[in-house]
Write a protein that binds this DNA or RNA. Structure first.
Lengths: 153, 153
DNA sequence: GAGAATTTGTTTGATCCCCAAACAATCTCC
DNA sequence: GGAGATTGTTTGGGGATCAAACAAATTCTC
């Protein structure tokens, strides 16, 4: 009669999961997302990684259409609409009329959006430093490289 | 007068994004998710990576409570309820009454659930092979190792 | 042992992400 | 000029997520 076979707060048996690239990737991604949210919350800002990526894309490609942006983000154009609505309501971004094509909107950051993006970029740098704190510079390069290979397929 | 400065279908300028671990991680994760969905769809099965992880956890830790499972998955217990509902409706999983604690449910796979999980595991192995097709065995080990470090923080 | 405090699973409510289909406005191509 | 394609939007339908409130059951406290 030893103790009952159920250990009070023992770690669960995860079976083959820890050996699966997909599983480990998902967990790392989740940890990174949490740190991102935390970093911004502590700074009194509200932004998701997706929104940050979107803002950078619009910043670096002024006049972009919504279709081109949706394609670059890998989402449907209808998914993009409420996301842009929100960013526009926050005064970070504008939908201008394209002079050459009446169907499309030429996206651009507002001056306030540019300033906010600079602020966000600073937070992202701090966030990146934190999530890579256990990695050497060489390891970070390797990791990014390998992830790129996974993405390319 | 060269061509206009806007190249027709040139890749967008992604600025600093490709150098950000968080960004590259998110893209890799997205590609992996797509391949997972594809693999299962082609086999006529329907399952998400999260559901697969859940099934493995229940399989390897019979009698688990919903709270313990939610903690292991890193989600709220209220989030878990509809997920279990669906799996139960599919006949893969059961909520048994715990004989020792009337508040908790003892989770377990049904026989059909066990059989389905074996089928799923085969598909996951094929999926894993595909997403890591550009990586050597050594690289996969390194990648999993580095991702684990990111997750641990 | 009785009552208070905690834990568990569930429901409800609020955001959010995602896609597909339909639609009007606009452009392109013959 | 008219047919067909493209663009942004709306609507509808899944899900994922959390927070708050609740009943049932257990554990703690006196």
């Amino acid at each position: 009669m030893g103790r009952p076979p159920v250990k009070p707060s023992a770690a669960l048996d995860r079976g083959l999961l820890p050996s699966l690239l997909g599983y480990v990737l998902r967990r790392a991604q989740s940890a990174v997302f949490d740190d991102f949210a935390n970093t911004f919350a502590k700074a009194g800002e509200a932004l998701t990684p997706g929104e940050f990526g979107l803002l950078v894309l619009v910043d670096r490609n002024a006049g972009l259409s919504q279709m081109a942006l949706a394609r670059a983000l890998g989402i449907d154009r209808s998914t993009l609409v409420p996301i842009l609505d929100r960013l526009q309501e926050r005064g970070l971004l504008m939908r201008h009329r394209s002079p050459t094509d009446g169907r499309t909107h030429a996206l651009a950051l507002t001056p306030a959006g540019e300033k906010a993006l600079a602020r966000f970029a600073r937070l992202v740098r701090a966030h990146e430093k934190r999530i890579a704190s256990q990695l050497s510079a060489a390891e970070i390069r390797i990791l990014i490289d390998l992830l790129e290979k996974v993405h390319t397929g």
